[in-house]
Design a protein around this nucleic acid. Structure first.
Ligand SMILES: [Mn+2]
Ligand SMILES: [Mn+2]
Ligand SMILES: [Mn+2]
Ligand SMILES: [Mn+2]
Lengths: 229, 229
DNA sequence: AAATATTTTTAGACTTATCTAAATTATCAG
DNA sequence: CTGATAATTTAGATAAGTCTAAAAATATTT
């Protein structure tokens, strides 16, 4: 029996290419307009010179548009490819939490690997197996197979005013530390939160979660997404 | 947010290293004794010179013992590492067939990718989720977490004599073509087969499967494992 | 508008994993 | 035992993706 070579190469994009596309996709959403070389380098924890190399390669492949010194923008192709990687990442996260009982702060690293497994059929069946979920365990929307994302109305908890009420629909940061803090405070996706007080000096708040009332810093409020009720 | 680099590198072995270890492990089982450079090259579909390079690297890492011109043998470490990759491959194959309803001839390629996802916890949970299966969809034994394999008594269908009866417990080759042939003939793991006749000239047989009786070539008989009843 | 600082790109080097071609060692037949 | 053949290794090249250091372009200050 002869083993097939180039599992990755015979698929369309390399692991490195997919990771760059994903990073650029996310950066495009945050800061509207061209994405800078340095921004990509920082997000990917690489050097700007490496980014320039890769960006030139991706431009040749028509996945993004690039003019020297002017930053990049994904093309329709590039955006679709990136969204598909993100779709896979988030579906796998759902699998890990719903089926393998991982905790929501443990799944990101593993999904970073699983998202690069190439098989349309696999993802289509995984999606069905999971009941075609719309959101991942952190409340992030799962793009459909065409790369379209249903963007929902949500704001940061820090944007709520005194006496307003919201339901937690997602986290902006999903580090273990932050997610574990939320667990300790019994906050998860779907939890209802009422703002009892807000301090303008430092942006801190007093909130009510279930029967508990407690203080949260500005940083917490700026990393929790809610829908107002 | 900063993305962690080197998901693969911070785990112990590279994709290429794991594939070499796996290939050598399989070759060791077939032909007892040292595994030759050419044999590895053929199985991996690479050139012998590439094999020499990799084998020298793996020897430095104490995963195998190597003497120039004399072939290689896995060390205990090397064997355990290889068995663990095979464990992952086969568990994922079970997942694909049992949970995602893939057909047994569709899962190998996808498992070739999934087997390189690094996370002990993932595999331990996957194993539990699947009910700690002992065999993969092709009847191959799944090594335990220490790399131990329960080797079962099995022989090739071609070794059976006239009037002997056996139950299919595995396939030696698992190409799509062969597996689809077996489906057409309604043979799968667990199917009972009776040898009605055997032709010494060409090794062909007449067998009974359920109510059907039909002719099979030597090649078929040499790729089907059975346990005699 | 010129000087300075920052960002971005280029040039050249390194690592991993691969290849071809040539050299070396082993094996086998006479 | 010796020469031919086969197997294996070495040497040198290549491609992908990264890095450092230096050059070039852009942005910001004064
Ligand atoms: Mn994630
Ligand atoms: Mn997520
Ligand atoms: Mn397989
Ligand atoms: Mn198998």
């Amino acid at each position: 029996m002869v083993i097939k070579k180039y599992i990755y190469l015979c698929s369309m994009f390399s692991l490195a290419e997919e990771n760059y596309l994903k990073a650029i996709y996310h950066l495009e959403q945050q800061a509207k307009g061209e994405v800078s070389t340095n921004a990509i380098a920082e997000r990917m924890d690489t050097k700007p010179s490496s980014v320039t190399d890769m960006v030139q390669k991706l431009a040749e492949k028509k996945l993004l548009s690039y003019k020297r010194y002017k930053g990049v923008l994904l093309t329709a192709d590039g955006r679709k490819t990136a969204a598909n990687v993100i779709r896979k990442h988030r579906l796998w996260e759902v699998f890990l939490v719903e089926k393998l009982n991982f905790h929501w702060d443990e799944v990101h690293e593993i999904a970073e690997q699983l998202e690069h497994v190439h098989s349309e059929e696999l993802i289509s069946r995984l999606d069905k197996f999971l009941g075609s979920p719309d959101f991942d365990p952190h409340g992030d929307p799962i793009p459909d197979k065409h790369g379209n994302v249903k963007r929902t109305e949500k704001k940061l908890l820090s944007e709520l005013e005194k006496k307003q009420r919201g339901v937690c629909v997602g986290v902006r940061e999903s580090s273990s530390e932050f997610l574990q803090y939320l667990d300790k405070k019994k906050i998860t996706i779907g939890t209802k939160i009422t703002v009892l007080g807000k301090e303008f000096f430092d942006g801190s708040m007093i909130i009510q979660v279930g029967r508990d009332q407690f203080f949260i810093s500005k940083k917490i409020g700026e990393n929790l997404y809610v829908q107002t009720l």
